[in-house]
Amino acid sequence: MRTQDNQLKALAEKYEAGLCTPEEFKQIRDWYDSFETEGYPLPGDDEIKRAAGEATTRAINWVAKHQKPARIRMLWLPILKIAAALLLVASAGLLIFKAAHHGAQPIVWLQVSTAPGIKKQVTLPDGSVISLNSGSTITYPETFSSNIREIKLSGEAFFTVVHDPRHPFIVHTRQVRVQVLGTSYNIHAYPGETNTEVAVATGKVGVWGSSDKNKKVYMLIPGEQLAYNSASKRYAKSNLLVADIGSWQQNVLNFRMETLENISKSLSQQYGVTFTFKDRSLLNKRFQLKVKKESLANILKLLSISGGNFPYHISGKKVTIG
């Protein structure tokens, strides 16, 4: 037990300094997750004070034994600082437990949503900026907690996160969680779609599954994209042009060998229309297309030509394919 406590103390110090490796982040997440599942054996206030006093006494005795008498007085202040640091680490679990279970202030959550065809920019309490794509929703606290910045996303957004190594920034989606200290990246996580995608423009990003038991962390650098397929339960990493990441902010639609079914979902979000497929065989037909600020009619015309001139019809907010 003592060895485990020492390891947790060392991890806590590295975490506070923003120096944890992905594997160490996993250990810390497992530790914190244990609060929710099985609880954590926390000492009482008297025990923590006793242990802190004992640590201070041991430190002073060590100095008295190993240093010259003239230097002992000079070392008192640093010793007390070390003892205070030990007390802080030792009581961290208790403080977290009390904040979570005894009189913690309720978190006030704010929500911002965009309608189909509408994009919006949101500035978070820490100054980070989120560009929210159409048909998307973010949920975030009115004030971030003292040790972490967490938000929830449904849909697509481009994040420009203020760098803060002491307060990791975590985005929760239905399929994955994304953690950074400060960087810019895009998350595509629309409900009802098979793929959830994370692409990095600057910095480094850690990604892991929301329900993965092993909680393996995938690290991404600029120009890399990680896609999680909810049907196959598999991850796939690929490379992108950095300039293409988040290009939807400039009204650019970029489909890379995408199925017509997924393209229709994207067009529904961007133009506020619904699609009906009379010819179901067209659903899995794949297309490569990149257009900017084009009308829906022109996009469908380009898709039809490259797809063998399949028939389509636009009637108000309804599109019929086949």
Score class of each variant (00 low, 15 high):
His101Phe: 07
Glu13Cys: 06
Lys49Trp: 11
Asn147Ala: 11
His188Ser: 12
Gly117Trp: 01
Leu220Glu: 08
Tyr40Asn: 12
Phe25Cys: 12
Pro116Thr: 07
Tyr15Gln: 12
Glu261Thr: 04
His102Ser: 11
Lys14Glu: 11
Asn61Met: 14
Ser145Glu: 13
Ile305Trp: 09
Lys318Ser: 14
Tyr15Ala: 13
Gly182Thr: 00
Glu142Lys: 14
Ser281Thr: 09
Arg58Phe: 14
Lys119Gly: 00
Ile314Gly: 10
Tyr235Leu: 03
Val112Cys: 10
Pro141Phe: 12
Ile60Met: 15
Glu47Ala: 13
Arg166Lys: 11
Gly39Val: 10
Leu95Met: 11
Thr274Ile: 03
Ser128Cys: 06
Ser315Leu: 13
Ile187Met: 07
Ala12Asp: 03
Val89Arg: 13
Ala59Arg: 15
Leu132Ala: 04
Pro168Ser: 02
Pro311Leu: 10
Lys292Tyr: 04
Thr56Met: 15
Leu253Thr: 07
Ile299Ala: 04
Leu110Gln: 15
Lys81Ile: 15
Leu282Gln: 06
Asn254Arg: 07
Phe310Ala: 04
Ser266Trp: 02
Val217Trp: 04
Gln4Ser: 07
Ser264Thr: 09
Gly307Lys: 06
Thr320Asp: 08
Ser295Cys: 06
Val198Gln: 03
Asn214Ala: 14
Asn6His: 01
Lys204His: 10
Leu226Cys: 04
Gln270Trp: 08
Val176Ile: 08
Glu23Leu: 10
Lys98Ala: 06
Ala59Asp: 13
Glu47Lys: 11
Gln4Pro: 00
Val205Lys: 05
Leu267Ser: 09
Gln4Tyr: 08
Pro69Met: 08
Ala99Gln: 13
Asp45Phe: 11
Gly209Leu: 08
Gln27Ile: 08
Ala227Leu: 05
Tyr185Ile: 09
Trp31Thr: 04
Pro168Ala: 01
Gly192Leu: 12
Thr3Trp: 00
Ala231Phe: 05
Ala227His: 01
Leu240Gly: 02
